[in-house]
Design a protein around this nucleic acid. Structure first.
Lengths: 248, 248
DNA sequence: TCATGGATTTGATCTATATCAAAGCGCACC
DNA sequence: GGTGCGCTTTGATATAGATCAAATCCATGA
């Protein structure tokens, strides 16, 4: 694996800078973050954090995919969040979380010891403000997912999932949130993990991939890669109101 | 309708104080909030805010129930939040919201003009911190709801809904989050609204109320009131893992 | 007191998705 | 370069909950 990037002005993993450039971190703040930082790697399937466990660190995803999930008494589980590179793990001001965090693929995290990180926040209002923005982004994503889980059909769920991946990967690649052409897409999860994310079974996920393929909307290159042949039909298939979804 | 309470040290509607006493608001901050405050009432069914509309105010629910909801292209809708007295409406640092806010019952809001409210936040870190806590509480609630929408059966959804109402009403009445005895419960929504909240149809909601009644877990006093006859069986019926749900 | 209309309950039937089952496929490891 | 084991696909069947339909309830106002 590539050596993880050092934390510096350009570090895409800095939890304060990620998803938008924070122009206000000064050299001293940077240096302070540098001293409490460490990289940690997790293999696919590893637990990163358990529900209820005291949080030792906050972190930013450098590479790979991690997921947040909750479980019912009898073992049924539901993913409640997906963490892609540059996403943040942690809850300013909270000791514990009430979901599990698991490595979906191999993952590298840029971790910051929690106590000193929170001390830093106290002194730097613009960092606190950035964290508030991140929390609100997560809340928006959670509410979109509630609509998906409560009201979308299996086909719409898969289309929404692929559309989200397309937007996020395009965003990462070009900084532009609205891809316009067909594209090769990395699907970094098994059918089972996708099912847990979408509130479906793995068989239904597989069938709907096949349907979208039969309809000429996607092509399956391999288990983990699809090409979007017709993005506008994919987006129509999401069921979303054209103006104003979170992803638009 | 009763005259709304004035804003003062004891005002349960103060968005900074609600759900927990903020011991750090000084007299000057209070006075400042007082100048930008106004009460507004909405009749059941009224729109409070539309998706995409610029936010003119932030607010705290004084009485009644409001809901956040999202809609698909073909009109299917899903509630993504329920606002009970003392809950907060608003997104520090955001101009618009991407869901509708509707009065579920008659509602009284304590509104604060957004710009001056945000100016106040800038100067008072402890208020910003309180808002962060509120956002994280909402995020926790949203994630519990994702588990409910994605994986719970109709019976479990209704049980969870009633358990939530029981906890929240007990909390409001006694300040203690864990009711232990059976209790009369106010259900402030129609079957249709409950269905939209739980990702069900109104018929299924009605049937499951009947089933819980037949099983001796609840009694239906009237359309809007139930008594919980056996709280522990109600909680078992939620499907939640005994240790560690959000509501525990 | 009765008529009216929305909300609710209950019944009958339908269907999308779950569940159960059995091949395929392909990568990793010998 | 074969073998085994996950992962995936596809098929057959079952079922929870949706949909369609009809009473019933109950608040409201004439």
């Amino acid at each position: 694996m590539m050596n993880p990037p050092l934390f510096d002005a350009a570090c895409s993993a800095c939890p304060i800078r990620h998803r938008a450039v924070c122009a206000r971190c000064d050299a001293e703040e940077m240096a302070q973050l540098e001293t409490i930082k460490s990289y940690r790697t997790f293999a696919a399937g590893d637990a990163i954090l358990w529900r209820g466990e005291p949080l030792a660190f906050v972190a930013s995803v450098v590479s790979g995919v991690a997921s947040l999930s909750k479980t019912l008494e009898d073992g049924r589980t539901q993913m409640v969040g997906l963490l892609l590179p540059s996403d943040f793990i942690g809850r300013p001001g909270r000791d514990t979380i009430d979901f599990d965090v698991t490595a979906t693929t191999d993952v590298v995290l840029c971790c910051f010891a929690r106590k000193p990180f929170e001390a830093l926040i106290e002194d730097t209002p613009h960092v606190a403000q950035r964290l508030m923005e991140l929390a609100l982004d997560e809340l928006d994503a959670a509410r979109d997912w509630m609509l998906l889980l409560g009201r979308k059909t299996a086909r719409e769920k898969i289309a929404t999932f692929l559309d989200m991946l397309a937007r996020r990967s395009h965003l990462a690649a070009t900084g532009d949130a609205a891809p316009t052409a067909s594209a090769l897409l990395d699907v970094p999860m098994t059918r089972d993990q996708i099912a847990n994310y979408l509130g479906l079974t793995l068989e239904t996920v597989s069938r709907q991939f096949s349907v979208l393929k039969r309809d000429g909307i996607i092509d399956q290159v391999d288990r983990r890669q699809v090409t979007v042949r017709d993005l506008s039909r994919l987006q129509q298939a999401t069921g979303d109101d054209a103006d104003g979804g979170v992803w638009s």
